[in-house]
Amino acid sequence: MAKKKTLNTKVSIGRLKLKNPVMTAAGTFGYGEEYSKFLNLNNLGAIVVKGLSLLPKQGNPPTRIVETPAGMLNAIGLQNIGIENFIKEKLPFLRQFNTPVIVNFFGDSIKEYAKAAERLSRVSGIQALEMNISCPNRQAGWSIFGTDPKVTSKVVKTVRNATDRTLIVKLSPNVTDISLMARVAEDAGADAVSLINTITGMAIDIRTRKPKLANITGGLSGPAVRPVAVRMVWECSKAVNIPIIGMGGIISAEDALEFIMAGASAVAVGTANFVNPRAAQDIIAGIRSFMSGQGIHNIKKIIGGVNA
């Protein structure tokens, strides 16, 4: 036990200090409440809440998810209660915990992104903002926020001017060169980038000859995407100087450590929350036990520590 106490798992994302590098991924942990009876929210590095927009959104019609080998396709379509309802109904609960709250948000125009960021920055109890420019399930045309470098630059710059909070930009893997997008975000003023969002995919019911999702396509997550995500984190870590939050199919501490060694300063647990509501907490414990087993006293020593 004495040895355990000497482990330093603290990491920084911009001005945001985390007691450990494990957070939850947006859209997989609700507004925190849903999981509070399964784990101690105080143990988490940060809580990233379900993506919010200025006004509530309905999302897509069902069927919204379908399982695929070692993963799942989702097309929830960013259903959410809206920023005002979140502030009124959900944030007071989250304020009780000694864990930073990161609000994931999005807009349907550059103006909406800026307005949302501005509104969220006027509220206490929100330590950082994560800009979602990479959901694969929005209407046609929306994807340019995360796939057209010019638009990405413009929207990130605009949001940067609208908030003084730590600003994380969540990147899409559905691009030719994600490291270019990471550089664009860095140049536009992002404090950190998070990746990957889901990979656009499709599944077909061969008997009805219909797509399994009502939205036709959806975003693939889960262990199936992990090697792609690790590779992308590694590429981005060579391209930018800002911290990277790595995610994509992390189920275990070993998976999380892969991302950290690829260059991620922190990681987010997503689909695994659905499988095991205590996943994030178990992963933190697993990282600590790996560190003590390997004689690693400070997690920072292994960030980007891959010998490649």
Binding site: I65, N74, Q79
Partner: peptide
């Protein structure tokens, strides 16, 4: 179809007279 079972993923919504 549901992923989490605990109200977080919003996969299993149905349309009701009182919204989703």
């Amino acid at each position: 179809n549901m992923a989490c079972g605990v109200g977080a993923c919003l996969s299993c919504v149905v349309n009701t007279t009182d919204g989703l």
